[in-house]
C-alpha cells in the first residue's frame, strides 16, 4: 500500500500540471513576463528562465508533448504487439516464429541506437520519436501476448470454447485476451515509465518535438548552458519528470505484487521469517 500511495504522490505533479496546463496557464509559456533568472517565489513558483519566461507555465506545456508521444506510442505498441503476439502464439505458424525472432532481435539491439537510426530515416520531429518508441515497446507486448497465448491455447476452457463452435477471433478476444488483463496492466505501467524517460532523452538530444514548443527533455538541454546563472531551469523540469517516472515504476511494482503473487519478491522481514519456517518444515 505504501507503494501505491508513494507512486500516486510522485506521479501526481507531472500529471496534474500537464492536465491543468491544457485548460489554464498562469502565464504564456513563450512570453517574457518578468526579469530573467528569478528564484522560485509566490508569483513564479518555479522561477523564471533565461529570457524571463515563467518556468511553471513552460513545465506545464512541456509535459504535454512528452505525455502525448509516450501514451500514443505505448498504446499503439500495446494494441499492435498484443494482437501480433496473440495471433503468433495461437496459430503457431512460421510467420509467428519469424515475428518472435524479430522481436528478440529488437530487444537485443541497443534501444537508443535504434531510435537514432529511425530518426535518421524519418528526420527529427514528433513522428520519428513516436515511431521509435513504438518499435522500442512493441517487442515487450508481443513477447508477453505470445507466451500467454502459447500457454492458454492448450487449456480446457479454450478447447471447450472451440468445441462450442467459437471461431479463432472469438477465442482470442473473449477467452484468451481477458486472461492477459493483469500482466498487460503491469506492463503498460512500466512501459509508460520507460517511454517517458526515453522520450525525454531523445528530445534532450534534439530528435524530438522541435522548438518553439517546449518539452521536458529539450528544456533541460537549454537550461544546461545557463547553469552558472541559475540552477532552477535545470531542476524543475527534471524533477517533475523524474518524479513521474518514479511514480509510474512504483505503481508498476505495486500492481505486479498485487496481481501476480508468484512474482512477489521476498520483501518484508515478516515474509522472510515465514519463508524460513516453511523451509525448516
Amino acid at each position: 500500500m505504501t507503494r501505491l500511495f508513494l507512486g500516486l504522490v510522485c506521479l501526481l505533479p507531472g500529471l496534474v500540471l500537464v492536465v491543468v496546463g491544457a485548460f489554464w496557464l498562469p502565464f504564456s509559456p513563450t512570453a517574457v513576463v518578468d526579469k530573467p533568472f528569478l528564484s522560485p517565489s509566490l508569483s513564479h513558483p518555479f522561477g523564471t528562465d533565461w529570457f524571463g519566461r515563467d518556468l511553471l507555465a513552460r513545465v506545464m506545456v512541456g509535459g504535454r508533448a512528452s505525455w502525448t508521444v509516450t501514451s500514443v506510442s505505448v498504446a499503439v505498441a500495446g494494441v499492435l504487439g498484443v494482437f501480433l503476439g496473440l495471433v503468433a502464439g495461437y496459430f503457431r505458424g512460421p510467420l509467428g516464429e519469424v515475428l518472435v525472432r524479430l522481436a528478440d532481435g529488437i530487444l537485443a539491439f541497443p534501444s537508443i541506437l535504434l531510435a537514432l537510426i529511425i530518426a535518421a530515416v524519418l528526420g527529427r520531429g514528433v513522428l520519428g520519436v513516436t515511431l521509435a518508441l513504438t518499435i522500442f515497446n512493441l517487442p515487450y507486448f508481443l513477447r508477453l501476448a505470445h507466451a500467454k497465448a502459447l500457454e492458454l491455447r492448450e487449456q480446457e476452457f479454450v478447447i471447450a470454447a472451440k468445441a462450442a463452435g467459437a471461431n479463432a477471433l472469438r477465442v482470442l478476444l473473449f477467452h484468451i485476451l481477458p486472461n492477459l488483463a493483469s500482466p498487460l496492466l503491469v506492463q503498460t505501467t512500466f512501459a509508460l515509465g520507460t517511454s517517458l524517460l526515453a522520450e525525454a532523452s531523445l528530445s534532450y538530444l534534439g530528435l524530438g518535438v522541435q522548438p518553439p514548443q517546449p518539452t521536458w527533455g529539450r528544456m533541460l538541454w537549454e537550461a544546461q548552458s545557463w547553469l552558472a546563472q541559475s540552477p532552477w531551469p535545470a531542476i524543475f523540469p527534471g524533477l517533475v519528470m523524474a518524479l513521474a517516472i518514479l511514480g509510474l515504476n512504483l505503481l508498476g511494482d505495486f500492481l505486479r505484487d498485487l496481481l501476480d503473487p508468484h512474482l512477489r519478491p521476498i520483501l518484508s522481514p515478516f515474509r522472510l521469517r515465514r519463508a524460513e519456517e516453511r523451509k525448516a518444515g
Binding site: 533541460l220 527534471g238 518514479l246
Partner: peptide, 18 residues
C-alpha cells in the same frame, strides 16, 4: 536503489555539473 534505478541519467549528469 528504487530512486536511483529510474533517475534519468542525463538529468543526474546536469545536476552533477551544476
Amino acid at each position: 536503489n528504487q530512486i536511483f534505478l529510474v533517475l534519468p541519467e542525463f538529468w543526474l549528469g546536469i545536476l552533477l555539473v551544476g
